[in-house]
Amino acid sequence: MKVQAFPIVTYYTIYLEAKGVDLFSDFIERCSKKHPDELEQLKRWLERIGSEYGAEERYFRNEAFLGGDAKALPPPKGVSPIRKTKYIEDGNNLRLYCMVFNRHNVFLFNGATKTANKAQDCDNVYPHFLLANQLCRLIHTATVKKDIRIKDGQLEIDDDFYLEIK
């Protein structure tokens, strides 16, 4: 679902039918009380990236790959472009996972405060990290199958299209 369109970047998120909530709303809901300032800073950051700079790779931090797990990122070889899970993190370790589809389209997922050195060692972020990776792969596959298309710079997705998370 589309969250907000800015002159350069359009932000999307994923609606979880089973939970009746979209990922980004869930993130906002959980962080509003504990991290109100960080959330405001994130909002401003998303606005400026969306309005002035575009979703340049350099402003999003690369997520570490899961070591030794063949099912994790990166996507299968020979399929391009490679889409990796990214995250936005403020100075207080509030981490929001996302997928930079291209310079003009970004999927915002979920996140939390990272309390360990590695995401996979942190109970807070690990579930979101896993889900973000899954979603990246699914979105990538859907793009290859043309279930997700680009039209006039924005993403075109049929209303009845679903990503199945196994």
Binding site: M1, I28, K43
Partner: peptide
């Protein structure tokens, strides 16, 4: 799909110091 906190997120006013910091 119903609107949600995500949709209204960008309409919020934010504190000047948070805006300036970013």
């Amino acid at each position: 799909m119903k609107t949600s906190k995500a949709s209204s997120f960008f309409e919020r006013e934010i504190k000047p110091e948070n805006k300036l910091f970013v």
